[in-house]
Design a protein around this nucleic acid. Structure first.
Length: 287
DNA sequence: CCCCTCTCCTGATCGC
DNA sequence: TGCGATCAGGAGAGGG
């Protein structure tokens, strides 16, 4: 599933091949991929790619005054000059003959031409304006994020998955960050100390960085790079997908629970539920 | 405003 | 063998 490291890997791949290229033709298959695009992809024909932007899990092709926003959803892939594949939802042709396919099995992804709105010094597509900065954004300020989180009267895992608080984290890296910080996924955000939250976000940032270095997590083959290759971070996952296996820190059997309707894997010994402020899990601090 | 649940979708897997 | 049920999950819509 594409989260920040996977989307950033895709962004880099697209930037390598498409900067300066002009779109000469577009073709879409089915209505779902353009469900937020009232005029389909036609508005971007003729646009020249001046940059590929990203915030959290959203990315966009920058044409100067206009953008093409892309969200990969659960299974979206961009593939450059690929062989014929199932589930192709859009096909984009560039002036140098490069062919870009948007492939998406589960159809949660979409493409949408969009206008920009100013966000301080930056410009961000309107569809992305409500999305918070992600942990790799230089302008993401940790103390502000900790305060915002501390004010939430809901479970910490919900907050990590809430893209309007901090973006880019999905189910895999939420579980990894909570494990690293020794925090139970169902602990209430407001019950955690500022120190715990600071550790949590530092660990989250660290795991995102390490996953990016590995080219992302190709846990179930729904994510690959623009050339079809896998990422390797699945080999380094310490929580996600490890239900019933021994904790890599203490040996206790990893358990599964459901938070926010999402499967959540945690160590019952290292990640203690916070009844109230000040209770650390046994693993916290061991980084 | 805040928080929660439901919904969209396909393919893999499981039990009968 | 085959078939129905279940699960996976990002984020937008809508409800309380």
């Amino acid at each position: 599933m594409p989260e920040l490291p996977e989307v950033e890997s895709v962004r880099r791949g697209l930037a390598t091949h498409l900067l300066g290229r002009r779109i000469t033709a577009v073709q879409t298959y089915g209505e779902r991929v353009i469900r937020y695009a009232p005029h389909g992809l036609e508005p971007v024909v003729g646009g020249t790619v001046t940059a590929i932007g990203r915030r959290g899990k959203f990315l966009w092709f920058d044409f100067g005054r206009q953008a093409l926003v892309a969200h990969l959803g659960m299974s979206g892939q961009f593939r450059l000059n690929c062989e014929e594949l199932p589930h192709v939802r859009a096909h984009i042709t560039f002036d140098d003959g490069t062919l870009l396919d948007f492939v998406d099995q589960r159809t949660f992804g979409y493409l949408a031409p969009d206008d920009y709105r100013a966000d301080g010094e930056e410009k961000v597509p309107c569809r992305v304006c409500h999305i918070a900065r992600d942990l790799l954004d230089p302008q993401c300020e940790l103390p502000f994020l900790v305060q915002k989180t501390k004010a939430k009267r809901t479970q910490i895992k919900r907050v990590l998955l809430d893209q309007t608080v901090v973006s880019g984290i999905g189910n895999i890296y939420a579980d990894e960050a909570l494990f690293a910080a020794g925090i139970h996924p169902a602990s209430f955000a407001c019950d955690l100390t500022e120190l715990q939250l600071t550790v949590l976000y530092c660990e989250a940032k660290a795991v995102l960085c390490r996953a990016l270095e590995a080219g992302g997590t190709s846990f179930d083959a729904l994510y690959v790079h623009v050339n079809g290759e896998s990422g390797y971070f699945d080999r380094e996952l310490r929580a996600y997908g490890r239900t019933g296996l021994p904790c890599l820190r203490c040996g206790a059997i990893m358990q599964r629970t459901v938070v926010a309707g999402r499967s959540s894997v945690f160590c019952p010994q290292c990640q203690v539920f916070n009844e109230s402020e000040g209770t650390f899990g046994a693993g916290c601090g061991k980084i």
